[in-house]
């Protein structure tokens, strides 16, 4: 009973049984989080560093809470206030921190593949908290957990991922995770924001948001990642919102109960209108709540492999 991997670099590397184990363990941690004392002593001999080379609110707080509720010692690192701004390399930064006897690294970086690179150079277990436009595995796991909680299962469900598929690491991790769990997935967005050959991952492509909504059980709506787009891919946010933004009137017109998800941060009025984001169909805050339990499960299962610890 343990994971097949030493690091959590991406959902791509996980077996369906790994995903099932993480989700099952997360259920138990969710119960822990309902207790009067929301803390267990499991990782009290483990030190974890949160290496964040890119901004984050939810993921960072969620990881830190998960670590603290497992009784791990945590160290926070933000690139902007560190020696990285003095020109230190990634490997040097990591090796220096690890020489102070740190066991695990949670890492976010704007370069795709940065955690994979680091995994080849250091001994500690690495948890990818988002790397460039590649993967954001814990987000996909907590999305799958939240869908399972809401719908009973993910298998056989129809899931639409709507928005900036090209620049979203959440989209890629979700595609891997959902297809491994046996869901049907459609990605939907303007043609310029959908990568070529995405069908090879086992998903369908749609450019029509209304048809997509009429088809799906769950709509996972993604933010337009303007910070990663270095050329104009659509005319204006207003135009995007008119064609691909999800409003209450659009949802009403498909006459169907659809679960609305969003990994945050929401740009209200662009991809999602407030009347949808705050509606009972939206499980956006449940996703955030579940994030802590899912991350506790990931850290617990990775730390439990003794040979992982340096």
């Amino acid at each position: 009973m343990s994971l097949s991997v030493k690091h959590l670099l991406g959902i791509k590397d996980l077996l369906p049984s790994d995903i099932a184990l993480i989700l099952k363990t997360a259920e138990k941690f969710k119960e822990v989080l309902q207790r009067p004392i929301k803390k267990v002593p499991t990782l009290r001999d483990t030190s974890i560093v949160n290496l964040f080379f890119e901004n984050s609110t939810r993921t960072r707080i969620s990881f830190e809470l998960a670590e603290k509720r497992l009784s791990a010692d945590t160290i926070n690192f933000a690139a902007s206030s560190s020696s990285v701004s003095k020109g230190e390399t990634l490997i040097d930064t990591a090796k220096n921190i690890l020489s102070m006897k740190v066991d695990m690294v949670v890492m976010r970086h704007s370069a795709s593949g940065a955690p994979h690179f680091l995994a080849n150079h250091i001994n500690a277990s690495i948890v990818n908290a988002g790397d460039g436009i590649n993967e954001h595995p814990t987000q996909a796991l907590l999305d799958a957990f939240s869908m399972t909680e809401k719908l009973g299962t993910v298998k056989g469900k129809k899931i639409a991922i709507i928005g900036d598929i090209m620049h979203s690491r959440v989209a890629l991790s979700n595609i891997y995770c959902l297809t491994k769990l046996g869901a049907e997935v459609i990605v939907c967005g303007p043609p310029t924001l959908i990568p070529k050959h995405i069908e090879s991952l086992g998903v369908k492509v749609s450019y029509d948001v209304k048809k997509t909504l009429a088809w799906c059980d769950v709509a996972n709506v993604l933010r337009i990642q303007l910070e990663r787009q270095n050329k104009p891919l659509f005319s204006s946010l207003r135009e995007y919102s008119m064609y691909y933004g999800i409003s209450k009137s659009l949802l009403d017109s498909v006459k169907k109960d659809i679960v609305i998800m969003h990994p945050g941060p929401i740009n209200r009025g662009v991809e999602l209108n407030s009347d949808v984001a705050d509606s009972p169909n939206a499980i956006i805050l449940d996703q955030v709540e579940n994030g802590v339990a899912v991350r506790m499960a990931v850290l617990y299962l990775l730390a439990g492999k003794k040979d992982n610890l340096i």
Binding site: M1, T25, K28, E31, T42, K305, K306, D307, L309
Partner: peptide, 22 residues
């Protein structure tokens, strides 16, 4: 009551227990 997260043999090789329902 499940005690998995309170065990003192958490780091023993090959001894990761599957948590049960509390």
């Amino acid at each position: 009551l499940d005690i998995t997260f309170y065990r003192d043999d958490f780091n023993s090789p090959g001894l990761l227990h599957q948590a049960q329902e509390t």
